[in-house]
Design a protein around this nucleic acid. Structure first.
Lengths: 190, 190
DNA sequence: ACGGCAGTGTAGCAACTGCTACAGTGGGAA
DNA sequence: TTCCCACTGTAGCAGTTGCTACACTGCCGT
């Protein structure tokens, strides 16, 4: 059991670096000092290996988000969450999540299922941070979904835009949300 | 030349339906009534075929966006653009774009290069619509990037959320941006 | 009539894929 | 000592991949 966990961690490190899409057993095994034979032995199939890798990556992502201390306002919460996205480890986890989500878009397994599971835990953590930073109970989930979607979208275009540009876009979003949530009433979903 | 164009269109149709990631020449060729031999003959390599497919898809996407008539306000512009995303053809084009972008995240060619090119034209079209709907010259590009990122992010989680949920999130964004752009001064990048 | 050239089918290559069969190791329990 | 079991290496299978060599068609200009 311990061995399996070690392999899962090592495989995750490798996948975070080299991507999930072209992942194949033999190169992966060689890189982490084992053999394809062993990976199949411990995980049963490549699909289960991939599911394990996605689970490990998701745990790491959530752990990083949970460490962000509560912010003083919704605006600051958005900026602080974005700051957390500056963490290279989190960036790689998100990058791989985007890969998995893209694969899941066409219903491929185990990606589609893993993505749903990962997203659940992730949204809980995002929502919790917004709540702790002053967002209302009813509005927090919607805000979290909006912020998450925007961050993921920016991740997709990250190679295109400098970090400065992305940061300014996030500032626009943060400002807009601050006005929306503190203004007279708040928008959308009551 | 004509034949090549026909093949590119047919290949695009097939890729929009079945995805770009697992795409391989023989099944694709069989589906569109030709042979792998012919695809290589006309395009030279699979990479060039893929580049052609992405270009065709991008042209279609932009054509759809350009048809959206100018909206009366920034809020309405965001909602109208989102409405355009309800178009199934556009949805599939965006879905494939997300696939290409995910592949490009790790620097894979020809995806990374194609994605940059596609994004340029796409952002021009998005910006143009926001401009025509009342957004200022300086703020329109930032708004377009923000809206685009959010839409793409929502696309990633589309299997997770009902269209109603996504729509409410977009409404939140539209309301927030409307307040931000018509309020006293406007946020971020002056 | 003839040469050339765009287009096409058939067969195949070398590399790679996930996975399996077989044959072992070593150590710890009885 | 004996047995068992977690673990491992070697070889290989059947299938798929992008791509190519070779041979052939038909049409079009001369």
């Amino acid at each position: 059991m311990n061995k399996k966990q070690e392999l899962a961690e090592a495989a995750t490190d490798h996948a975070l670096e080299h991507g999930l899409i072209g992942l194949s057993l033999r190169p992966l095994a060689a890189a982490i000092g084992t053999s394809d034979r062993m990976l199949i032995y411990h995980f049963g199939s490549k699909d289960e290996l991939v599911a394990a890798v996605l689970a490990v990556s998701n745990e790491r992502s959530i752990a990083i988000i949970r460490k962000v201390p509560p912010s003083g306002s919704v605006r600051q919460a958005v900026m602080d969450l974005w700051g957390a996205f500056g963490d290279r480890q989190l960036q790689r986890c998100q990058r791989m999540y985007v890969e998995a989500a893209a694969l899941g878009l066409f219903g491929r397994e185990p990606y589609a299922t893993s993505v749903v599971g990962s997203n659940d835990g992730w949204m809980v953590a995002m929502t919790a941070h917004l709540r702790a930073s002053g967002a209302g109970v009813t509005e927090a989930p919607g805000l979290a979904a909006l912020v998450d979607a925007t961050f993921n979208g920016l991740m997709l275009d990250r190679p295109l835009e400098s970090d400065d540009v992305a940061r300014r876009i996030v500032e626009d979003l943060a400002d807009a949300l601050e006005r929306a949530t503190t203004g007279t009433g708040h928008p959308g979903n009551e």
